[in-house]
């Protein structure tokens, strides 16, 4: 230690401000350092590019069999011309898999966002009011949770085929109905998560203080509590997107989701399923791998965000 020094009164405030700013950037910093996050972003980025550009970057037209009979008869196994082979009516599977990301990536994230919005509203009401309101809503939510997701989806989507009401609110689009159904299926799950977070928050002194100055319940929920529970909601959203992709694919596989001629992966698996016994594995395998990579990619991102937020 030196004997002499110039008087350096450290500006405590400026220093601590700088510290805070770094701390705010820290989450992003930490995220970027996680290999899981990088891989996840890479995978999801790839599928997003496919979805956006679609048939502009596919090697063949995904909807026709123009070049599909290179091997003589459909389906062709993977070859240098058709890397993933062709399906039973001669369409290029690589092109269809790339194109298949479009419908899924339009439907699944929107459904997840809707479920998080509804679930947050429901969960906040349950957690904030507690008592009778919470008791009634909680039982309904639990009843809903007891039903298998796919069963309910199947039921509603099957019925919806000739429902005028559903037709009206979905603007005649099948995709919109699927969005509604998946959002409805996930809302109770999100509501439960949000409810427990609100329960932890609503007895904190700042809420008491807001009540003491006469704020309305709506104000307290939306302006006081909501900004403080965004972290778990964001985590929930990323997790829901992963599940939502899976659910939409499952519904399509069962034939009630996206419809032909969509190159949707679930649908493609359903169509190629009967070729499996004939050792024609490629029409099923590649779309299945596509679903797997996308779900894994989204979950890698979700896990990283969760780990960083709940650090």
């Amino acid at each position: 230690m030196s004997d002499t020094a110039t008087p350096s009164a450290p500006n405590v405030l400026v220093a601590s401000m700088a510290e805070r700013k770094t701390a705010r950037r820290e989450r992003w910093h930490l995220l970027r350092k996680r290999p899981g996050f990088i891989i996840g972003v890479f995978i999801c980025g790839f599928w997003t590019v496919c979805a956006v550009l679609g048939d502009r970057i596919t090697p063949y037209d995904p909807f026709t069999d123009r070049d599909g009979l290179s091997c003589g008869r459909a389906p062709c196994p993977p070859s240098s011309a058709h890397w993933f082979g062709t399906d039973k009516i001669g369409r290029d599977i690589l092109s269809r898999v790339m194109m298949g990301a479009r419908d899924l990536l339009m439907v699944a994230p929107v459904a997840a966002v809707l479920s998080v919005i509804f679930g947050t509203i429901l969960g906040m009401v349950m957690g904030y009011y507690r008592g009778l309101v919470d008791n009634v809503l909680s039982r309904i939510v639990e009843a809903f949770l007891a039903l298998p997701v796919v069963m309910v989806g199947l039921f509603i989507l099957t019925l919806s085929k000739d429902s005028a009401v559903l037709d009206a609110i979905s603007f005649g689009s099948r995709n919109v109905i699927i969005i509604y159904v998946v959002a409805l299926l996930f809302t109770p799950i999100v509501a439960r998560t949000v409810r427990s977070t609100v329960l932890g928050e609503r007895d904190l002194d700042y809420v008491v203080s807001a009540r003491l100055r006469g704020e309305s319940s709506l104000f307290i929920m939306t302006r006081e509590i909501l900004p403080n529970i965004t972290a778990p909601i964001i985590v929930e959203l990323t997790v829901r997107i992963g599940y939502s992709i899976f659910t939409v694919a499952t519904l399509s596989l069962l034939g009630v989701g996206l419809q032909r001629p969509s190159p949707d992966w679930g649908l493609a698996i359903a169509e190629g399923r009967d070729l499996l016994p004939a050792d024609q594995w490629w029409p099923v395998t590649f779309p299945a791998l596509a679903i797997a990579t996308l779900v894994v990619g989204v979950n890698l991102i979700a896990d990283s965000i969760q780990a960083v937020y709940e650090r």
Binding site: D205, V208, S209, A210, R213, P227, N228
Partner: peptide, 14 residues
């Protein structure tokens, strides 16, 4: 009005 023990939970962090 009231002044609480713990200013961390008494003030809305956001």
């Amino acid at each position: 009005q009231i002044i609480f023990q713990n200013p961390d939970s008494a003030l809305n962090a956001s």
